[in-house]
Design a binder for these strands. Structure first.
Lengths: 163, 163
DNA sequence: CGATACCTTGAACTAATTCAATTAAGGTGG
DNA sequence: CCACCTTAATTGAATTAGTTCAAGGTATCG
């Protein structure tokens, strides 16, 4: 339902015990955890923190709604292209702030084909086929493992949008 | 991207001026509006309010992710059934708390076929066809305008889930 | 080197779309 | 209150994007 990247926050502050969040690691991860009371103490002590958390959650909400557009309207190719661009953007964030992402850079898709398909609302076979097609067209290159290279980011972006 | 019902909140507190939210009324609406500074004053004055707002936003987020499952995995019939159930639930909330929603009760779908289709990620023709099918099967009845009746809520629920 | 999990590719099939033609509903002015 | 007009909804037939099912292929790890 949601894909979390490095530095993302996962949890339900102020929620009663009726809330359950389930997460599954797709790669090795390093977690920084707080108990709910701990976090609530921090939120009370630092008012700015509460606002920042709110902004984070609102950003997640905006992202989820954007993703709904993908799931409701985009074609399989647009979905796959969007996913690659998402990974590219996220990788750039952790690697080095404001690195301009030179063309052909090695990029890891941090999910199996099955998980990508799930996340994009299509089948794993379709993911494989559309990746192949993008590769045939010279927009990306597919390496071994879960690695790809974006050869033509501009063209990839063009093929990720539905309008 | 989101369908708001009576008592729902729309807005981005703490957001800079770069945020824009666009809303379109599908029916007549009555709005209660605050300027962002006004709201922020209230949030500071009443700490409980901030938590309540957070809970609302988190609930929106959960709902959005639930909807993503609908958009990513459900068939057209399941989507239409889910939408009717959503309207039923929302209508019950405003009408009379804890009214048990007797069978055959008149229910308004507050959107045009086009808007329903958009919201469900299918075409308006498919919406019409699936409504027809549910009607033929005696699960719902279609009235004039945007009104329907749920004749068999249990069966409708069964046809709204994908697993 | 063999085994297991993952990925790719092909061919047949199907759910939903698209395009086109009716039909029904709502609103307006006479 | 009724014809008229405009917009919305339904229905049908043909098409298609994506799925499903099945068979190979490739990587990785003990």
């Amino acid at each position: 339902m949601a894909l979390q990247f490095a530095s993302d926050f996962l949890g339900r502050p102020y929620a009663g015990d009726n809330t359950s969040a389930l997460a599954e690691a797709a790669t090795d991860v390093e977690l920084c955890t707080f108990t709910r009371p701990q976090l609530e103490v921090l939120l009370r002590a630092y008012p700015g923190l509460q606002q920042q958390l709110m902004q984070r959650v609102l950003k997640d909400l905006d992202f989820a709604r954007e993703w709904m557009v993908l799931l409701g309207r985009k074609t399989a190719e647009e979905r796959v292209a969007s996913f690659i661009l998402l990974c590219l953007e996220k990788q750039r964030n952790v690697a080095c702030h404001a690195a301009p992402s030179k063309s052909g850079e090695r990029l890891e898709l941090p999910l199996s084909r099955t998980d990508i398909a799930d996340y994009l609302g299509i089948t794993l076979e379709t993911v494989a086929r559309k990746l192949r097609q993008l590769s045939d067209d010279g927009v990306i290159a597919i390496h071994t493992g879960r690695f790809v290279s974006v050869l033509d980011a501009e063209r990839l972006r063009a093929r990720s949008a539905s309008d």
